[in-house]
């Protein structure tokens, strides 16, 4: 029995050594070929030599470099300021249906609720009409008091009415837009509403509807050329 044991021992010890070594090799291979394991490796490396690298390679520089950097920063800040609006502006949040009226310095004058596009696709035969508020930067192109609304085709289609001719008097509506309207292009406007209870909800055909008091303030604060940011 003893003789048999002695014969098996070297074989067993080889196996005992090989298995962990193979496992270790596999782990190392994983480190080599997988990003997750690499992250762990990076942590080890930073522990050993992070600070040394910082001092050595981090940044070449001196006082001249500091001065240059400060000058460049001032120059870029100046350029950035030039891009900002020179008149009071309004920011409209279409997800929460809220607006923020701001002065030139960016301070808030007034925030409140508004209504924006209902994100609806109206299918009328072959026609596809999308009701959504566009996003981006717009400019107030025109300001008008008691502006009548010239109803487009979709206003009739949506109500199941026959579409009148382009110059028909049926298209004129004196109440819908409220007391003031600010045009921002492509037929979109900031205007009042008959449905004040829907403020804060996405119900419009793309325009931004505002409450009477807010609209008055916005009308008086913004002028032609003022920026309207919609996001």
């Amino acid at each position: 029995m003893e003789i048999e044991d002695k014969k098996q021992k070297p074989f067993l010890s080889v196996v005992i050594w090989i298995i962990p070594l193979l496992l270790l090799s596999l782990i190392v291979l994983m480190i080599v070929y997988t990003p997750d394991f690499q992250n762990s490796a990076f942590k080890m490396k930073s522990f050993f030599s992070g600070s040394v690298n910082y001092a050595k390679n981090s940044l070449n520089g001196g006082n001249s470099s500091l001065v240059k950097s400060r000058q460049k920063i001032a120059s870029i800040e100046n350029k950035l300021d030039k891009l900002k609006p020179v008149k009071p502006y309004i920011v409209v949040n279409t997800t929460e249906n809220r607006f923020s009226l701001r002065d030139v310095s960016g301070d808030t004058i007034k925030t409140g609720m508004c209504s924006t596009g209902k994100n609806e696709l109206l299918i009328a035969g072959k026609k596809r009409i999308v009701f959504k508020t566009p996003k981006g930067m717009f400019t107030v192109k025109n300001k008008q008091q008691a502006r009548p609304w010239v109803k487009p085709d979709w206003a009739f289609i949506e109500e199941g009415l026959p579409v009148p001719s382009a110059r028909s008097a049926d298209r004129i509506d004196y109440n819908t837009l409220g007391d003031y309207a600010l045009e921002i292009g492509d037929g979109y406007m900031l205007h009042g509403t008959l449905y004040q209870r829907f403020l804060g909800l996405p119900v419009t055909h793309g325009c931004v509807r505002l409450g009477d008091k807010d609209l008055e303030l916005i009308y008086n604060t913004l002028s032609k050329g003022s920026k309207v940011f919609i996001y």
């Binding site: 209902k118 994100n119 696709l121 109206l122 299918i123 959504k132 949506e158 199941g160 009415l161």
Partner: peptide, 11 residues
């Protein structure tokens, strides 16, 4: 996301 709506035939 858009809600699709078929235009009504009449009022």
């Amino acid at each position: 996301s858009f809600i699709e709506k078929i235009a009504p035939k009449d009022t």
